[in-house]
Design a binder for these strands. Structure first.
Length: 450
RNA sequence: GUGGAUGUAGCUCAGUUGGUUAGAGCGCCGGUCUGUGGAUCCGGAGGUCGGGGGUUCAAAUCCCCUCAUCCACCCCA
């Protein structure tokens, strides 16, 4: 019996190498995409004063905050997302050049009940543009989202786009105020793809308290949709008549969708009037990314425009728009789809130890290869060769070097490729280049190795 | 937070109406192989049957409590 039972808090996870390695590779690709658009990194603390974070994500959001008192009696909380800390930074430093384009990658914490693809600690990757009202920024952020998915080799994804002002217009149309009542209606609309029309009508009437004419109005709204986004938006204009917010939202969507073609995201982003987003702070564009092969899995990307949030930390408001990629959920989703190669080591070359006499030579060889940029692991002890090979094979290391008396005498080394079992004796001079060549060569089919 | 289901080896599970030392497959370790992995065959290690209490001559099995996990609702990355 151990003194302490090893265990994990609910909703928290360990990332063992076979998961962490693919995850970090995903992250570095995402960073590459962010930087390709000129976003610069920002890092902020995990812990903030509680009043900085509370009240920004809706009443529901506050319940999900991990908050407590520190040793000095200060009310503190773990950050709930990366957007509010960014708003704090924008409010705190007056001398930032705008537009300020930053990306941030880090864990956030929410005291939710964990479920499939939902954790209490998870990593978000945010890219935001602050300091401009231009809708080109909204388009750019959508572009970034699409490029991220593409760069990760994910084919089955879709970004749903809508606008908060359009939803506000709908609420005006059906005579429901903003706030809890309005959010209730919007959430019901969000469930349209899960529940049939009769069910939705029932919820709208019984739970959201709508008149039946208002229910009809809701369906008239969600039923809109022509052959193209432009058609849909024209219908929407007519639907809103003289409701100003609604028309403003339509105008924004019209401008944003107008740039889809040159932005190269026309096939990825689609207008979806049933989209609702949880955060209270969104004011315009809202977007959500989903894996099309996992319906009902939840969103792996969220974002939108929040023009008033920064104003809470500063006299004047700073408009901003951004997206957030949920890598942990994305990774969990890709695992379910079996799209993640599980690799448990970065090692490319395994240097075996033939016997006690070969250690010094193997050590020198390993160092030389590392200096040439290869990732090299040396066996820790000269046990039976079979064991050393089995270890390398299990870890998924592609190449193994064996140097016994025969090879040493000739100044050569045996290179075995565990991917297809071929083996060749290679001269020590130019070895690194030779190994590199083999690693870069396409892997032959598995069948040939059996 | 609400409702439902499930907890037996590292993993997936079996375990007959409560009855002796709780099983299988996979994995792991060793051997077959004195310089070569993924195959075969042989052998081996590994389990307070989630935890606590109760009923009983006897509990993995029945009852109560508790914890954990999964699914749906909810919410979202």
């Amino acid at each position: 019996m151990p003194d302490v039972q090893p265990r994990l808090l609910k909703g928290f996870r360990d990332y063992l190498p076979e998961v962490q390695l693919p995850k970090e590779r995903m992250l570095s690709r995402i960073v590459a995409v962010f930087e390709s658009f000129g976003f610069a990194p920002l890092q902020t603390p995990a812990l903030e004063y509680a009043d900085i974070l509370s009240g920004k994500c809706g009443e529901e959001g506050d319940k999900l905050l991990y908050r407590f008192e520190d040793h000095g009696g200060r009310g503190v909380a773990l950050r709930y997302d990366l957007t509010v800390p960014l708003a704090r930074v924008l409010g705190q430093y007056g001398n930032l050049d705008t537009p300020f384009k930053r990306y941030q990658i880090g864990p956030v914490w929410r005291a939710e009940k964990p479920a499939r693809g939902r954790f209490r600690e998870f990593v978000q990757c945010d890219a935001d543009i602050a300091g401009t009202k231009s809708l080109l920024a909204d388009v750019e952020v959508l572009q970034v989202a699409c490029r991220c998915f593409e760069r990760l080799g994910i084919e089955g994804f879709r970004v749903r786009l809508s606008n908060r002002k359009v939803l506000s217009g709908l609420l005006v149309k059906i005579g429901v105020g903003e706030g809890p009542a309005g959010m209730g209606v919007i959430r019901t609309i969000d469930k349209m793809d899960k529940i049939d029309e009769d069910g939705i009508r029932k919820i709208l009437r019984d739970e959201n308290g709508l008149e039946s004419s208002a229910v009809d109005d809701v369906f008239a709204f969600t039923g809109l949709g022509g052959d193209s986004a432009a058609d849909t938006l024209n219908e929407l204009d007519a639907y809103f008549g003289d409701i100003e917010v609604g028309r403003a939202g339509v105008a924004e969507l019209r401008e944003v969708t107008g740039y889809f073609e040159p932005a190269g995201i026309a096939s990825r982003v689609s207008l979806d009037l049933s989209l609702a987003r949880g955060m209270d702070y969104y004011t315009g564009t809202i977007a959500e990314g989903v894996l099309t092969d996992l319906p009902g899995f939840g969103s792996v990307l969220g974002g939108g425009r929040y023009d008033e949030l920064v104003g809470l930390f500063r006299g004047q408001s700073i408009p901003a728009v951004g997206i957030s990629v949920g890598v942990d959920r994305l990774l969990a989703g890709l695992q379910e789809l079996e799209l993640v190669d599980s690799v448990s080591t970065p090692t490319e070359v395994y240097v075996t130890l033939f016997d006690g006499d070969s250690i010094a030579e193997a050590m020198r060889l390993s160092s030389e290869l590392r200096a040439e940029g290869l990732r090299v692991e040396m066996a820790p002890e000269p046990v039976k060769l079979g064991k050393q090979l089995r270890f390398a094979d299990r870890k998924g290391i592609p190449l193994v070097l064996v140097a016994g008396p025969d090879e040493r005498e000739q100044g050569k080394v045996a290179v075995k490729d565990l991917r297809h079992g071929s083996q060749e004796t290679v001269a020590l001079s130019g070895l690194a280049a030779e190994l590199r060549r083999r690693l870069d060569a396409p892997v032959e089919s598995e069948a040939a190795s059996r």
